[in-house]
């Protein structure tokens, strides 16, 4: 479990679950990317603005493996 501090929001990525489907990239392209070699998500923006909350919540719902969580 990787915890990334994001100011008021915290994104939790469960790398045991992430299968690199990458749907989160569509929801929040400035925050998520996929590591080509590892086929797993990487968090690009550790401190996204509050106005991305809706997009981040969509990324959580769109993840087919339930690997993402937004806390806070």
């Amino acid at each position: 479990m990787a915890n990334v501090a994001t100011g008021r929001l915290r994104i939790e990525v469960n790398l045991d679950r992430c299968a690199g489907h990458g749907q989160c990239l569509l929801a929040a392209p400035t925050v998520f990317d996929v590591d080509e070699a590892a086929h797993q998500v990487i968090v690009l923006d550790p401190d996204p603005a509050e106005d991305l909350r809706g997009a981040l919540q969509r990324a959580v719902s769109m993840c087919p493996t339930g690997a993402l969580e937004v806390v806070g």
Partner: peptide, 25 residues
């Protein structure tokens, strides 16, 4: 609606819709 964890592309796992990103776009 939020959250919206629909399973239109399948419920996850190895058969999750290959074209999901294309469909969404």
């Amino acid at each position: 609606r939020s959250p919206n964890p629909h399973i239109t592309f399948g419920g996850g796992g190895p058969h999750f819709c290959l074209g999901a990103a294309l469909a969404r776009t």
